[in-house]
């Protein structure tokens, strides 16, 4: 009985792991196959052909797309954290009138459907002359990351002991010094967590990137992959697409493996504690 339960348990673990990993595994082995080899199904890696990996950089400015994604996501993370930490201090530790209403508004914004702001955002970005530019995308992506950054950092900020802040006030610190000299170092782990989440959100963003860019050179990775096309409209270059997918997924997987604990902490802080 006990053995049966144990076997069943491990079987379940294996099934889940298989289900989670197989698509990525299959993308990898597909990315190493070219030409007509792709038109037969293979379950095991049999060839190791890197031509898809060269093709993905030759047929479109994929290197440029990756760089764009890094610039956009990096800037979004820095801006969100810079704005978010000061705001989180105010929301998390100071009682002022209208605080919970505003905090709830911000939470509500983080649940906005992106498409609801699409028309207005399009107009805004055009009027700033930012259409088809990276700053335009950075601005748009802040709408996705800033509210939840504030929200998650606020929940972390609330956990810090009150007396440390009071000791700093007795020592003569202004609120700004408290944030910069006392809380910023203490918030570093939380900021890493939140920054990672913001990075992933921004790295994966598609709708804005698709709508607010026009040329291949300005696209970030998701629209670049979505819009990859082959020689004819009916034949998608699956091998190249899989190669591109593998390239952009590997850094994310590394991040997840390294920062697994922090990411989980951030996800649950935003939801459960909130």
């Amino acid at each position: 009985m006990k053995l049966l339960a144990r076997t069943g348990f491990w079987l379940l673990v294996i099934v889940i792991a298989f289900f989670a990993l197989f698509p990525f595994y299959y993308a990898i082995i597909s990315s190493f196959r070219t030409g007509s080899a792709l038109f037969s199904v293979a379950y095991w890696p049999e060839t190791f052909d890197l031509s898809n990996y060269f093709a993905v950089f030759e047929r479109q400015p994929f290197g440029r797309n990756i760089l764009n994604s890094i610039i956009v996501s990096g800037s979004v993370v820095v801006l969100s954290l810079a704005l978010g930490i000061t705001a989180a201090y105010a929301f998390g530790r100071i009682a002022f009138r209208g605080r919970s209403l505003m905090l709830m508004t911000i939470l509500a914004v983080s649940m906005f459907p992106q498409v609801a702001v699409l028309a207005g955002m399009f107009e805004l970005i055009r009027s700033f002359g930012l259409y088809n530019t990276l700053p335009g995308l950075i601005l748009a992506n802040l709408m996705l990351t800033l509210p939840f950054t504030i929200w998650v950092l606020t929940t972390f900020m609330r956990e810090l002991p009150k007396e440390i802040e009071e000791a700093a006030f007795v020592d003569g610190a202004t609120p700004w010094i408290v944030v910069r000299r006392v809380f910023l170092p203490l918030m570093a782990p939380a900021a890493v967590t939140t920054g990672l989440l913001a990075f992933i959100v921004s790295w994966n963003e598609f709708l804005f990137a698709l709508t607010f860019t026009l040329t291949n050179e300005r696209r970030t990775v998701p629209p670049a992959i979505a819009l990859m096309s082959g020689s004819t409209a009916y034949e998608l270059p699956w091998g190249t697409i899989m190669a591109g997918s593998v390239i952009v997924t590997i850094p994310i997987i590394v991040l997840v493996l390294v920062f697994q604990r922090k990411i989980v902490a951030g996800l649950t802080a935003g939801a459960v504690k909130g």
């Binding site: 009071e166 700093a168 000299r181 203490l186």
Partner: peptide, 26 residues
């Protein structure tokens, strides 16, 4: 005034010297 707190309220990221020097530095 100076205050001593129940939980000590030391700045966790500063060493003992900096904890004591912080107020003077400010």
């Amino acid at each position: 005034i100076a205050m001593v707190f129940q939980s000590y309220a030391l700045y966790p990221h500063m060493n003992v010297y900096d904890n004591m020097a912080f107020g003077l530095e400010l």
